[in-house]
Design a binder for these strands. Structure first.
Lengths: 234, 234
DNA sequence: CGCCAGTTTGACCAAGATCAACGCAAGTGG
DNA sequence: CCACTTGCGTTGATCTTGGTCAAACTGGCG
């Protein structure tokens, strides 16, 4: 029934801008729900680039990331790819009501996820109706994030996109100075609607301008948050 | 609490691509819910460009369009604007759980909407829990549409965007040959992440190529659906 | 050591933005 | 009734951003 969607609960750094500290409250609610769900979940490990599900697969379950990172992506004609979202430890995805997946999900690196069957989830919700609210909150959060990203994709320049991305990653991964970026430049490009080369050039420019340091391609040091924010908020 | 979002129920033409005819089923469910909500709603008329709500307003209600069209938009620095979504007769929007609006809503032309207070809605849901499902379905549909639009904004060329837009409008407004586009070129541009000039040029090119006719700026005749689809699906 | 996958950098190109002019219909006020 | 304005829409000339193509660099790993 209805439409599949890559639903998730993310920390919601974007939503926080308007929601002040309510996100913390939401997170608590979601956390309570997760405890309830725990007993119906099963653990699963994936190697780098392993496919968790593909476009068109039956969507009879949803997931939570335990460790590592997952990307949800979609291919379109002539090989173009778009990454809908990245999910990190604690994030949920694949909560929706469609028989088929509209996106495919792959492991960015080594990943461990919990898998929650849809049927058992529905049963649990019937027992504890307040869980429905938690699921709805996850979706609301997802929707807000999707809409902020439409803004980014539709109206922001390459430097604005990359700056926003970096700050968002620092936030979501609770990194203060040093950030581990598990995904490749190609993943970042497909997430931001740019090319690999443009992502590289912008990162190099940020480095030249003293905004960041690039210890190695997957390790970013934040040197001037204000400067980055000034570009990102543009 | 939580995050505001421009939720809606749309016909879901985009979702249909994967959901076969389930959309019809979903629509019925939503319709039933609308009947239930009818007694808590109040009617409201708006003139062209009138503001229904603004970014930052208290979000204590949601809406359904009776006639006309509404646009949900957001401004960012240096005057750039992005239109999140258009809503036509039958569509719902503003269903979310945030205290403040993240977007503003304006009348594209003359508009009549129904307004449903949040508090009364919650009460109704407590009485009839299946209504919660209808609201969730609206949100799932919204999320799917948002994600398809991210693809469009991130990875499609100007002609692909405009072709997709036109076909989507033909679908959503149940137009077979002749389509009334209530919004301005500027609205279309801000919806597709393009400039007014590019939208004009692409439309003129489509006309030159015999794909459409432009009786007047707000009246489009479809001459070659296959040709448009070939460009849009690219 | 040499290969390989991913990254970075440079030279060039093209899609679309910007700037500017013109068209056109609907008001508006003398 | 007719200048004049105003708000869109369209078209053209030019410029910029970011894409494309190509080459060099880097760090593993057989």
């Amino acid at each position: 029934m209805y439409v599949q969607v890559g639903s998730t609960s993310r920390g919601g750094s974007i939503g926080d801008r308007a929601g002040t500290s309510d996100a913390a409250v939401a997170r608590l609610g979601v956390l309570g729900a997760l405890v309830a769900f725990e007993r119906i979940g099963s653990r699963r490990s994936l190697d780098r680039n392993a496919e968790l599900f593909a476009e068109g697969d039956a969507a009879d379950c949803w997931f939570r990331v335990i460790s590592g990172a997952v990307r949800l992506s979609k291919l379109l004609a002539n090989g173009r790819r778009h990454i809908t979202e990245f999910y990190f430890a604690g994030d949920c995805f694949g909560i929706d009501n469609l028989p088929e997946r509209l996106f495919s999900a792959e492991a960015v690196g080594e990943v461990v996820v919990m898998r929650y069957p849809r049927r058992a989830t529905e049963r649990l919700i019937d027992e504890q109706p307040q869980l429905a609210r938690s699921l709805r909150d996850m979706m609301v959060c997802d929707l807000a994030n999707a809409q902020m990203r439409m803004l980014l994709l539709g109206r922001m320049s390459a430097p604005e996109r990359v700056a926003t991305f970096l700050l968002d990653m620092f936030d979501r991964r609770d990194a203060r100075r040093s950030l581990d970026l598990p995904m490749s430049r190609s993943d970042i490009a497909d997430y931001l609607g740019l090319t690999i080369e443009t992502v590289c050039r912008v990162l190099s420019a940020f480095k030249r301008d003293g905004l960041i340091d690039i210890a190695n391609p997957h390790q970013i040091e934040l040197r001037d948050r204000g400067g980055l924010a000034a570009i990102g908020e543009a």
